[in-house]
Amino acid sequence: MGLDSLYKEVILDHYRNPRNRAELADVHRHADGNNPLCGDKISLDLTIDGESVTGISVQGQGCSISQASASLMSEAIKGKNLQEIARLRQLFSTMMTSDETIVDPDRPGAVLGELEALAGVKAFPVRIKCASLPLATLDVALAGDAKPATTD
């Protein structure tokens, strides 16, 4: 796997034009995540209506992988219910950390949508923590923990 599989067009697009940056009117859950060693930062606000995440706002700074991952995640979970989000979370973890291949090369996006663009990060072990920070921060937000997330 080369650099092209890491820095896909969709990742550079989400890095340069991050989605869901607008502030929310109603913030029900909030969490911060940071990797102190490399300096990546994510700040997450959620609006929750019943069992669904109806609004998400992401702020942050850091490398293209961490910031694109945050943007891609925000698109992937918006409007989803908590059960769907938990499943997506599980699939993402598997994609990033296990040898199991969950992405179908013939049907790109079929399993994890645009988040599949991050599959190439697995070949760059020191960068996995960058890709994982946004979802680790989401875990904290959904659990209502006060302690910031980190994947360092």
């Binding site: 080369g2 650099l3 890491l6 820095y7 060693l37 490399c38 300096g39 990546d40 850091g62 490398c63 293209s64 992988i65 760059f124 020191v126 960068r127 960058c130």
Partner: peptide
């Protein structure tokens, strides 16, 4: 380009720099 991205790209080309 964030320095970590730069470092990864350089590393793939056999160049070790520090980023951060």
């Amino acid at each position: 380009i964030h320095p970590h991205d730069l470092s990864t790209i350089l590393d793939e080309n056999g160049i070790a720099v520090r980023a951060g």
